[in-house]
């Protein structure tokens, strides 16, 4: 337990110390909120869908959580090449404890980043339907964070080179974001796209957040279904992460 805690604490401390990185990481979401949010707002409104900012805020929060959680995978590549990973691998502790500490740390950082973006959306004009829904939304955000931090651990344990991670960013993380319905409504999509959005775990995260934060009618699948899917995917990804991490050779 102490081992899990100390490795978790390490991730959180490093995040809180990296002020520049925190500010830099606001850039992407701010761009989407500012440029797309206000730029596409009038069209969205004319199509009879209401406020686009209101609609996309959960998507942008989901984006921040996804990117930050996946970034913990790249942090593992750094740790692998610049040493710290080895220090933990020769320690007399189970690999599983190390993996869980790291993954929970990465997930916590993602939740913190999600919180920051949530505050930014509030400033931009996003208004959740009820204050009571916010804590529930955070449980969902935490679940999304664990799902992707575990995926990042699995990937970070498998690939060894930075170039590999660029592939992951372009062919995995970006599609996960764009296919999640973070930026567009899910009903009425062309078949292929609809099918793709359904295999994307983030879809359920964003959908669930919408259901909680902007009203029941706005969840396409329903919050309960979203949570169920995320829990199932989370179990699979954590297992995959633990398995891949146990196979690392120094």
């Amino acid at each position: 337990m102490a081992v899990v805690f100390v490795l978790w604490l390490r991730e959180v401390k490093k995040y809180l110390r990296s002020r520049v990185q925190i500010v830099a990481s606001l850039g992407g979401p701010l761009m989407y909120l500012g440029v797309l949010g206000f730029g596409l707002g009038p069209v969205f409104q004319r199509a009879g869908e209401g406020s686009y900012l209101q609609f996309m805020a959960p998507g942008v929060i989901g984006m921040a959580v996804l990117f930050t959680a996946m970034f913990s995978g790249i942090a593992m590549l750094w740790d692998r090449q610049f040493g710290f990973l080895k220090e933990t691998l020769v320690a007399p502790v189970p690999r599983l404890a190390i993996m869980i500490g790291r993954t929970l740390g990465g997930a916590t950082v993602a939740v913190l980043q999600g919180t920051l973006i949530f505050v930014v959306t509030l400033i931009a004009g996003f208004r959740p339907v009820s204050v009571l829904a916010v804590p529930l939304a955070f449980l969902l955000i935490a679940l999304v964070a664990v799902v992707f931090a575990a995926l990042a651990t699995a990937i970070g344990s498998t690939i060894k080179e930075m170039q590999g991670f660029q592939m992951v960013m372009n062919f995995l993380v970006m599609p996960i974001f764009f296919l999640s319905g973070a930026l567009y409504p899910l009903p009425g999509l062309p078949r292929v796209l609809a099918a793709l959005t359904r295999v994307d775990p983030l879809t359920y995260g964003v959908d669930g957040m919408r259901g909680l934060l902007i009203g029941r009618g706005s969840a396409h699948f329903g919050v309960a279904f979203d949570v169920a899917v995320l829990l199932a995917v989370g179990v699979v990804f954590v297992a995959a992460g633990a398995w891949r991490f146990s196979k690392i050779e120094a």
Binding site: K14, F82, G83, F84
Partner: peptide, 8 residues
């Protein structure tokens, strides 16, 4: 190779 965490 060094195995310290330089951010700590």
């Amino acid at each position: 190779d060094p195995s310290l965490d330089s951010e700590l």
